[in-house]
């Protein structure tokens, strides 16, 4: 793989920072603003959905920028921002093993049960 492609995959950030040693957050800063993931609740009653990402210097700026970019057409009543490094993700390679127990428990689905047609309200 060419050296310019560092595979920063979701869930890698946190581990890499911890392993890479300490940096005093208040004194030094990297030249690039950190990356934030943005979640928007478009209407009261719905949950927050992932809308995308953006770079910002801190949380307050991230929220303002998210409002500017992701809610130009009134698409949001609430905004959550999380630094990308704090998102931990499952490994898709483990999907089979991780989700397999759920696969054969078909009794969790309502269609598994054979009940008389005369039964109402169920």
């Amino acid at each position: 793989m060419s050296s310019i492609f560092r595979k920063n995959l979701y869930g890698d950030y946190g581990d890499r920072e911890a392993a890479g040693g300490s940096e005093n957050g208040a004194d030094s800063f990297r030249s690039e603003w950190p990356l934030w993931e943005v979640f928007i609740r478009s209407k009261a009653g719905l949950d927050h959905k992932h809308a995308g990402s953006l770079h910002a210097a801190d949380a307050a700026m991230a929220i303002e920028n998210a409002r500017d970019v992701y809610t130009r057409r009134m698409e949001g009543v609430s905004i959550w921002v999380v630094e990308s490094k704090y998102i931990h993700a499952s490994d898709p390679n483990d999907a089979d093993a991780l989700y397999e127990p759920a696969n054969d428990k078909i009794y969790r689905h309502p269609t598994f049960y054979d009940l008389p047609d005369e039964l109402k309200h169920m």
Binding site: E17, S22, E23, N24, G25, A26, D27, F29, S31, W33, A57, D58, A60, M61
Partner: peptide
């Protein structure tokens, strides 16, 4: 502007932590 925003964010963070009576934590 990019540098100033980062510096400002850093100062804001320090002020908040001092106000909360905590020491700046090394990452």
């Amino acid at each position: 502007v990019r540098d100033a925003a980062l510096a400002h964010a850093g100062k804001r963070k320090t002020r908040k932590e001092k106000a909360a009576g905590q020491e700046t934590v090394a990452a």
